[in-house]
Design a protein around this nucleic acid. Structure first.
Lengths: 140, 140
DNA sequence: CTATGTGCAAAAGTTTTGCGTAAGA
DNA sequence: TCTTACGCAAAACTTTTGCACATAG
């Protein structure tokens, strides 16, 4: 068992929440991925474990709440999840307009804009999503 | 009839496509909005015209294809539409994590990053979506 | 043991599609 | 007139929820 899972287990135990098979499977899968994945994609790839799709959504909600994963709302209307900035360098994404495939773009380049946005809108800014939309090499 | 509608009508006519009541109603509505709206929001506000929700989606698809509107994929899984950069200053958005309300954030601040993203990923970059996620004054 | 989480199935919500008809040009 | 687009209804998809049962602690 690796560090993220140990941390997660401890954090959950502190609040009477449990480290279950579904949560372990989902988190382990996310740790092995380099790109954001949708709930359905996780479901298909862990099908042999018998974990239910609803449980994957519920696990993702828990991980989001704990700050262990971040989500990306992609053009195309499918939500994708990945390990959060706490465990990976902060970065952004490029999504293919045709096939929906997603890749990381290293770096940020937009830090410092949050404060300006907060001032001009009155919102309390919690995070940002910055996504390039384009065509992947296969779809050009 | 204003300029955008005239342009649109001409562009459609050139390809054997028609300027219909549904398209006129949807485009006119978008021209009157300052913030991105979902298909359902348009539908509710133009209900008295009898325009069908499916026709609103179809009109939006057409306008997207013609570059007359842009879409924003918001956290929460609802797609919103607004007049494109061709008719409004380029800008970005802030979305409330709780209620989904959306506001413009003036300016860009991320121009010049597209080329770097293209180089590092091999994608052809067509556009970008930059969204701040936070809490609106009502939801704080 | 006991409360929490899961599987299953149904529901909810958004977006798409097929088909017969209305209506632009 | 003749093709395009619309209305309607159903379907397709993603995500959420209720409930009885399983299971982690």
């Amino acid at each position: 068992m690796d560090r993220i899972q140990t941390d997660m287990r401890t954090a959950l135990a502190a609040q009477g929440q449990r480290w279950t098979r579904a949560r372990e499977v989902v988190l382990a899968f996310l740790e092995g991925e380099r790109m954001p994945v949708s709930a359905k994609e996780v479901f298909k790839k862990v099908r042999l474990t018998g974990i239910n799709l609803a449980s994957i959504y519920r696990s993702m909600d828990l991980f989001l709440e704990k700050g262990v994963v971040d989500c990306v709302d992609s053009p195309g209307g499918v939500r994708r999840y990945e390990l959060s900035d706490r465990f990976r360098p902060h970065h952004h994404h490029v999504v293919c307009r045709e096939c929906g495939s997603t890749q990381d773009v290293a770096g940020c380049g937009v830090k410092g804009l949050e404060e300006r946005a907060a001032q001009s809108t009155g919102f309390k800014i919690l995070s940002h999503q910055f996504t390039f939309v384009g065509l992947c090499p296969d779809c050009v």
